Amino acid sequence: ATNIVGKVKWYNSTKNAGFIEQDNGGKDVFVHKSAVDAAGLHSLEEGQDVIFDLEEKQGKAYAVNLRIK
Rank of each mutant, 00 (worst) to 15 (best):
G25V: 05
F52A: 01
H42V: 12
R67F: 04
K69D: 09
S13R: 13
A39H: 02
H42P: 12
G18M: 05
V8Q: 00
I68E: 04
T14W: 13
A1R: 14
E55K: 11
V64L: 04
K9G: 02
G25T: 07
N12M: 08
D37G: 07
E55H: 11
I20E: 01
I51M: 10
A63T: 02
A39K: 02
A1S: 11
S43G: 13
D53I: 03
G59A: 04
G47C: 07
V8A: 01
A61M: 14
R67K: 08
E21F: 10
N16Q: 13
D49C: 15
Q58H: 14
G47N: 06
F52P: 00
F30K: 04
F52Q: 00
G26I: 06
G47Q: 04
H42W: 11
T2K: 14
N65S: 04
V36R: 02
T2V: 13
S13E: 11
I51K: 04
Y11I: 07
V31A: 02
K7G: 01
Q22L: 13
E55D: 07
N12T: 06
E56T: 13
G59V: 01
L41N: 02
V29A: 04
A39L: 07
E21C: 14
V5D: 07
I4M: 11
E55L: 13
K60L: 10
A38L: 09
Q22F: 11
K27T: 09
E45N: 11
G40R: 07
L66P: 00
F52S: 00
I4A: 06
S13T: 12
W10P: 00
A61Q: 14
V64S: 06
Q22T: 12
S34K: 10
L54N: 01
K15C: 13
K33F: 09
Q48V: 10
S34G: 08
S13W: 11
Y62M: 09
Q58Y: 14
V29M: 02
N65R: 08
I68C: 07
K9P: 00
L44H: 01
E46R: 15
T14L: 13
E46C: 13
S43V: 11
S43R: 12
D53V: 03
K7D: 00
W10E: 03
I20Y: 00
A1I: 12
A35R: 03
K15M: 14
G6W: 02
I51Y: 08
V36P: 01
F52I: 03
W10N: 04
Y11G: 01
R67Y: 04
L66S: 00
D28T: 09
A1Q: 13
N16T: 06
V29I: 11
D28E: 08
D37H: 14
S34Y: 09
S43H: 12
N12R: 09
G25A: 06
H42A: 12
Y62Q: 10
S43Q: 11
H32R: 07
T2C: 12
L44V: 03
F52Y: 06
K69E: 09
T14R: 14
G59I: 02
D28V: 10
G47A: 05
K15N: 08
K60F: 12
A38Q: 09
I4V: 11
V64D: 02
G25Y: 07
I20R: 01
I20V: 05
E46M: 14
Q48G: 04
H32Q: 07
S34N: 10
V29K: 01
A39D: 01
W10G: 03
D49Q: 15
K27S: 10
K60N: 08
I68R: 06
S34F: 10
Q22G: 06
A63C: 03
I68N: 05
I4Q: 10
T14A: 13
K9S: 03
G25K: 08
K57A: 10
G47F: 04
N24P: 07
G25F: 07
Q48T: 10
L44F: 05
K60R: 14
E55G: 06
F52T: 01
A17L: 14
V8I: 10
N3G: 10
V50D: 00
N65M: 03
K57F: 13
W10F: 09
V5Y: 13
I20W: 01
Q58F: 13
Y62N: 06
T2F: 14
E55S: 09
F19M: 12
H32C: 11
L44A: 01
N3Y: 06
A63N: 01
I68V: 12
V29D: 00
L44W: 02
G6L: 02
K9E: 00
A35P: 01
L54W: 05
A35I: 07
F19E: 07
N16C: 13
A38K: 11
K7S: 05
F19I: 12
K33M: 06
N3E: 07
K33S: 09
E55Y: 14
V31C: 02
Q48L: 10
V8R: 01
S34W: 11
I51Q: 05
K33C: 08
A35F: 04
S43Y: 13
V8H: 00
V5C: 14
T2Q: 12
G18F: 06
V50Y: 04
V64R: 05
G25C: 08
G47S: 05
R67C: 04
L66A: 00
R67G: 02
H42I: 12
A35Y: 05
G40E: 05
F30E: 05
G40C: 09
S43P: 09
S34A: 10
A17K: 09
A39I: 07
N24A: 10
A1C: 12
V29S: 02
V8E: 00
D49P: 14
N12P: 02
E21H: 11
L54G: 00
F19G: 03
E56R: 13
Y11Q: 01
G40Q: 07
F19N: 03
I51F: 07
K15A: 10
V36K: 02
S13D: 09
V29W: 05
V36A: 03
K69H: 11
V50E: 00
Q48A: 09
N3F: 06
E46H: 14
V5Q: 13
K33E: 04
V36G: 01
I51D: 02
T14F: 13
K9L: 06
Q22C: 13
E56D: 08
Y11T: 05
E45Q: 13
L44K: 00
I4H: 07
K60T: 07
K7M: 05
G47H: 05
T14H: 13
I20K: 00
D53Q: 04
K60Y: 11
G6D: 00
E45I: 14
K60H: 09
G6V: 02
S43D: 11
G26P: 05
D23I: 15
S13Y: 11
N3I: 03
F30P: 06
G40T: 04
F52C: 01
E45A: 12
E56A: 08
V5L: 13
D23Y: 15
G6A: 03
E56W: 15
E21P: 01
G18D: 01
H32K: 08
E56N: 10
D37P: 01
G6Y: 02
I51L: 10
D23G: 14
N3K: 06
K7W: 08
W10I: 05
A63W: 01
A17C: 15
Y62G: 03
A61L: 14
V29Q: 01
Q48M: 13
V31F: 12
V36F: 05
V64N: 04
G26H: 09
D37W: 14
K57G: 08
Q48Y: 06
L54A: 03
T14Y: 14
V29G: 01
A1K: 14
A61D: 07
K69N: 11
Y11A: 03
I51V: 11
